[in-house]
Write a protein that binds this DNA or RNA. Structure first.
Lengths: 244, 244
DNA sequence: TGTTGACATCTGTGATCACAGATTTCTAGA
DNA sequence: TCTAGAAATCTGTGATCACAGATGTCAACA
């Protein structure tokens, strides 16, 4: 009706405080800065964010709806441990959905997206050589989601995000071990990544699916292995939180 | 450490107000009582629920995180219309995930579950003969989810719920037409249901998947058909809300 | 008649307070 | 030294208020 908005002049990072709190918490989760079993508190997080509890409440509500956190009435909020059955559930759906996403990505991917993915892959590799946990997890997320975004399905993307939110904290301890003690295994995962990217570049959907699925299954095996060696199957060692 | 909890003695319908508000809103959505394009208001819903806005806020936040509602800052909350691409996205994932759920259900289902499903199926059929929209949608949900629950995957269940939350309002208008004008088509869907139940009873996973997938595809075709005939493709006629 | 401007109203967002239940701490008793 | 119980503290939940932005209404002007 009116003249349309003037030529894009400012993306303006407008964000309500609750969105910001949500983003911060989610980032802390998927980069392994909050470990399974950790308990949080509304007021505690609010203080670290410098806000009142209101924005934190909405952020926690959202993460709780996404199954990433569990709020225990009057007893705090915690990042749940996964039982064996729950872990199996997460892994099997990751295989299914991330495989599907890679297959779809192979069908739709453009040269520009491939280029971006390769850059992110290199960045991930560099982080891996440095050996620091959080950067590796962050760049790994960036790399994978760049691929999944090429699948052109916002809903599929959202579901994968949901699965990863549950899965990543569960893997963190194992990834740390991998970086420290098993460069061979980590190197193998680079090879897998390269194979996946090649399949994408060839627009070979079934192969892309297969590569991703075997990659996830290998990771699952490794995580299970580390967990069994480190004691109880369900409880990888906790991670101290750097910031919320 | 302590003596474990005493033998189950009371499920106790404890519910915080926000859980209650969430349940009510969700039920209103999946039983077609709120149509696409409808706009709500925190204070309006709160008044109808007889609470303050706080519980409603949390419920809306949750539904918004689940992509079922969109909150427009300072302008209200609305149930979004689906563009053609979004609708296609929802349908294709429904085919994939509900098919998978049926396949898994076929592998795990017990005689007791089958009996329950048959009862719910009969109840659905009766509602269909009566021809009232909301009971049909409610019992249809009960019937389908009883099957999906047999898949033994809480996460898969959650994702399907998420998809249906987006899909059902989008189908409501078409289902109404179906009940009123196309008993033949509705009768066909009973036959499909029976075929699915038979596949489940036979523990035939591939067949169960196929039955469900063809059922969903048929529904998609019907919805698309009704939408095209009724005018703009994206906007089935609105539904007046009975209660929030 | 058609347009613009101010004003009133309504929106979600955020802060603050009150509250009841769970947990922890401390104390009094054996 | 150990235990039971009371008090203090801390938790999420809910209500209420203040606020800024968006919308709608309506009068004054051209």
């Amino acid at each position: 009706m009116n003249t349309p908005v003037p030529p894009t002049l400012a993306p303006i990072e407008h964000a309500t405080l609750n969105e910001l709190a949500y983003a911060r918490l989610k980032h802390a989760l998927v980069s392994g800065r909050i470990g399974p079993g950790t308990t949080l508190t509304l007021r505690q997080v609010a203080e670290q964010l410098g806000t009142s509890v209101m924005p934190v409440r909405e952020a926690i509500t959202r993460l709780s709806a996404e199954n990433a956190l569990v709020v225990m009435p009057k007893r705090g909020i915690r990042l749940p441990l996964l039982s064996d059955e729950e872990a199996e559930d997460v892994w099997s759906l990751r295989v299914q959905l991330e495989g599907e996403a890679c297959a779809r990505a192979a069908r739709h991917i453009t040269a520009a997206e491939l280029a971006e993915i390769r850059v992110l892959g290199d960045s991930l590799q560099n982080a891996g050589e440095a050996g620091d946990l959080h950067p590796v997890l962050e760049r790994n997320n960036a790399f994978q989601f760049a691929i999944y975004r090429a699948a052109r399905s916002p809903l599929l993307l959202q579901m994968i995000e949901l699965l990863r939110l549950k899965s990543v904290p569960h893997c963190t301890a194992a990834v740390r071990v991998m970086l420290r003690e098993r460069p061979d295994y980590y190197h193998q995962s680079w090879i897998n990544h390269a194979a996946l990217v090649a399949a994408l570049a060839a627009h070979d959907a079934p192969r892309a699916r297969r590569e991703k699925q075997s990659d996830i299954r290998a990771l699952r095996a490794f995580v299970r292995d580390v967990a069994q060696r480190a004691g109880t199957a369900a409880g990888p060692r906790l991670v101290e939180e750097d910031h919320p």
